[in-house]
Simulated assay, not measured.
Amino acid sequence: MTHVLLLGGTFDAHVLSTRLHEAGISAVYSYAGATLTRRTPALPTRVGGFGGVAGLVQYLRDQHITHVMDATHPFAAQISAHAIEACAQVGIPLLSMERPAWQAQSGDRWTQVADMNAAAAALPCDGGTVFLAIGRKQLAAFATQAAHHRFVLRVIDQADEPLPLPAANCELVIARGPFRLDDEIALIREHGIEHIVSKNAGGPDTYAKIEAARQLQLPVIMVDRPQLPPRTQCETPDQTMEWLAHAR
């Protein structure tokens, strides 16, 4: 009997959970639980980590998982790497659904960097207002290397724990995508944003800020996706369902 573990937390994973439910396929949806406000998936859910590779291997065996679909965020590298190793140990198929990365277009002023430390180092030395469109988890580099800047940080929800950025130099914007181009231009103008730091998440939901930067000729520091070991990949829920049909 097919029993799928869907590693989620993205809109595409939410869509895929609905597709699995509608197809009558036995599956469980797992996500980290990092955000307080979230879409409710159509499948039975579990929240939190597995306890590393060993914990995930034990879960796969205990729950008689037959297939794993990794539809986590492209920057959720740890769980993706653990899934690759755990599935190899147990000997079950794994598919990674990952939307294509954004590509620089004519008019874009991108500086591509490997990680957040490099992104913080790439900001100009003379300060300025920086739009951090990177979530709240990887702010330490900006607190230590670029504290002389003023930051506008957009997050999905308000968390209880304090941010590492100096409160006097950081304004919090709470919003969930998809975002419209006109609204992104208005946000940039309202806050006097001069630089944008973005993860290369891909997909349409948060691309409007990149379009806005292009129109306003603002520089963008684009953080590349983490490198992962080779694995079977696709780009859409449709392709994922086709893979499962063949894998079964």
Results as ranks from 00 to 15, higher is better:
1 M>F: 14
3 H>P: 02
4 V>C: 06
6 L>R: 03
6 L>M: 01
7 L>I: 13
12 D>W: 01
13 A>S: 14
13 A>Q: 02
17 S>D: 01
19 R>D: 09
20 L>A: 06
21 H>V: 14
22 E>V: 09
23 A>P: 02
24 G>E: 04
25 I>Y: 01
25 I>H: 01
27 A>S: 14
28 V>E: 15
32 A>K: 09
37 T>C: 03
39 R>Y: 00
41 P>A: 09
44 P>F: 01
45 T>L: 08
46 R>F: 00
46 R>L: 02
48 G>I: 07
52 G>K: 07
54 A>Q: 13
55 G>T: 10
56 L>P: 04
57 V>G: 08
60 L>G: 04
62 D>A: 15
62 D>W: 05
65 I>R: 00
66 T>F: 06
66 T>G: 14
67 H>Q: 07
69 M>W: 08
69 M>V: 14
70 D>M: 10
70 D>N: 13
72 T>Y: 14
74 P>I: 05
78 Q>T: 15
78 Q>F: 04
79 I>D: 04
80 S>Y: 09
80 S>W: 03
80 S>T: 15
81 A>P: 09
82 H>Q: 15
83 A>G: 13
84 I>W: 08
84 I>N: 09
84 I>G: 05
85 E>Y: 07
91 G>L: 06
92 I>S: 02
92 I>A: 09
93 P>V: 12
94 L>N: 13
95 L>T: 07
96 S>M: 09
96 S>Y: 13
98 E>P: 08
99 R>Y: 01
101 A>L: 11
102 W>I: 05
104 A>L: 05
104 A>F: 01
105 Q>P: 01
106 S>G: 11
107 G>S: 08
114 A>S: 14
116 M>C: 02
121 A>Q: 05
121 A>I: 03
121 A>E: 11
121 A>G: 03
122 A>L: 10
122 A>Y: 06
124 P>L: 00
126 D>S: 11
127 G>E: 03
128 G>T: 06
131 F>G: 07
134 I>A: 00
134 I>S: 05
134 I>G: 07
135 G>L: 01
137 K>N: 11
140 A>H: 12
143 A>F: 10
143 A>T: 02
143 A>R: 05
145 Q>S: 03
149 H>L: 10
150 R>G: 04
150 R>F: 00
150 R>Y: 02
152 V>F: 02
156 I>P: 00
157 D>W: 02
157 D>F: 06
159 A>V: 10
159 A>Y: 06
162 P>G: 02
164 P>A: 07
167 A>W: 00
168 A>P: 00
168 A>S: 11
170 C>V: 11
171 E>V: 06
171 E>N: 06
173 V>I: 15
174 I>T: 15
175 A>R: 10
178 P>N: 11
179 F>V: 05
180 R>H: 10
182 D>I: 10
185 I>T: 06
186 A>H: 07
190 E>Y: 14
197 V>L: 04
198 S>V: 13
199 K>F: 08
199 K>H: 08
199 K>D: 03
200 N>F: 12
200 N>T: 03
202 G>I: 12
202 G>T: 08
206 T>C: 11
214 R>Q: 09
215 Q>F: 10
215 Q>Y: 04
218 L>F: 14
218 L>C: 04
219 P>R: 05
222 M>A: 08
226 P>G: 04
227 Q>W: 03
232 T>Q: 13
234 C>N: 14
235 E>N: 10
239 Q>L: 15
240 T>E: 08
240 T>F: 06
246 H>E: 13
246 H>Q: 14
247 A>V: 09
248 R>L: 11
